[in-house]
Computed example of a mutant assay.
Amino acid sequence: MKKLIYITLIFISNVFFSQVKGKIVGVKDGDTVVILLTNKTQETLRLADVDCPENGQPFGKNAKQFTSSQIFGKTVTFYRIGKDRYRRTIAKIFYDNDKYLSAEIIKAGFGWWYYKASRNTELQKLQDQAKAGNLGLWADKNAVSPWDFRESKKKKKVL
């Protein structure tokens, strides 16, 4: 029994935490991309540690454009962290000599550090710097986080 558990844990860790390479073939929004894997299958990746404005939200198109300018058409390396409620793969994506995409988005002011699901407090510092510099969405003094925006949309649907 212990051997079976051990083998299962090794399999799961290899599936979820192994380094994978692929080419970015689509950008759905600022924090969701589509990658073409070496076996010619596509996988939708939801970026870990960051939450970008929704497409219908101010700066949503800017966030998508920034993400696209950084990685579209490039071969990137990513690590699977888990799955979200929509069954997308949550991933940490690295590109151009180990730039961490989520950090770059936050640093440029096109996303929030997603503190509800991230323990990387360095991203809070990058967010504070972007905010202090009025970069990206922080140029709007009344910027609304994506999670608050989604919650307000749910409440409107109920009414």
Rank of each mutant, 00 (worst) to 15 (best):
M1L: 09
K3T: 15
K3M: 10
I5H: 12
T8S: 15
T8W: 14
I10A: 11
N14L: 15
F16M: 15
F17P: 06
F17V: 05
K23N: 10
G26N: 09
V27M: 00
K28M: 02
K28E: 04
D29V: 04
D31V: 02
D31C: 02
T32W: 01
L37S: 05
T38G: 10
T38W: 08
K40A: 14
K40Q: 15
Q42W: 01
E43C: 00
T44D: 07
L45D: 01
R46W: 09
V50T: 00
V50L: 01
D51N: 04
P53L: 11
E54P: 02
E54K: 10
Q57K: 12
P58F: 02
K61I: 04
K61E: 07
N62G: 10
K64Q: 13
K64T: 06
S69Y: 00
S69C: 04
I71H: 10
K74C: 07
T77K: 09
T77E: 10
Y79C: 05
R80P: 02
I81G: 00
D84V: 01
R85I: 10
T89L: 04
I90S: 08
I90E: 06
I93C: 03
F94K: 15
D96V: 08
N97I: 03
D98E: 12
D98Y: 13
D98W: 14
Y100E: 09
L101Y: 07
L101A: 05
S102I: 07
E104W: 09
K107D: 06
G109D: 11
G109F: 10
G109H: 14
G111L: 07
W113I: 02
S118V: 04
L123W: 10
Q124L: 13
Q124I: 11
K125F: 12
L126C: 00
Q127L: 03
Q127H: 10
Q129E: 15
A132M: 05
N134H: 14
L135G: 05
G136F: 08
W138E: 07
A139T: 08
K141W: 11
K141L: 10
A143D: 07
S145L: 01
W147R: 00
S152M: 11
K155G: 02
K155R: 13
K156D: 08
K156W: 08
K156M: 12
K157D: 04
